[in-house]
């Protein structure tokens, strides 16, 4: 009976606690450029392209462009204000990578941990090329023998 009571209590209190939390967090207005686009469409396009390849640190596998997490909004604000101040998208990406490592970027760079990503396709192509050359070479020599 007590257990049931606790379960019911948790059912009611749980959501109110999390709601309080989200409400409190949303009570602050978002950063100016979290949900506001840059006036210049060219600059906004540059920012949007970059934001689509930066990882939201608070979410599971979402870019900061796709996320409504308050921190993603703050990151969008940083990207837009920095673009507006004349920084290039790559400068902004490396500013974030310097702080969070490769984790924050969806565009992998060649590094000590990521090199297999780049090396394996080349290796596979080389293997395929070798196999093809041997087979085709063999077929040609077979054909010559028949002639």
């Amino acid at each position: 009976m007590m257990r049931l009571l606790f379960a019911l209590l948790a059912l009611f209190i749980g959501p109110t606690l999390t709601m309080q939390q989200t409400f409190a967090q949303q009570a602050m207005p978002p950063a100016p450029y979290a949900y506001v686009q840059l006036e210049d469409p060219a600059l906004e396009a540059e920012a949007a392209e970059l934001m689509g390849t930066l990882r939201c640190l608070k979410c599971q596998s979402q870019s900061i462009n796709d996320s409504d997490a308050p921190m993603a909004g703050d990151m969008r604000h940083q990207v837009r204000t920095r673009i507006l101040a004349g920084e290039s998208p790559e400068q902004i990406r490396s500013w974030l990578v310097e702080r969070y490592g490769d984790y924050v970027s969806y565009e992998p760079e060649v590094s000590s941990t990521t090199w297999p990503l780049f090396a394996i396709p080349l290796l596979l192509l080389a293997v395929v090329g070798l196999v093809l050359m041997r087979r085709l070479g063999k077929r040609r020599s077979d054909a010559e023998e028949v002639n």
Partner: peptide, 14 residues
């Protein structure tokens, strides 16, 4: 820090 500016600048994620 209303816009997580310092948070982002020191690499804090939460």
């Amino acid at each position: 820090d209303d816009i997580s500016a310092l948070m982002l600048d020191i690499g804090a994620s939460g």
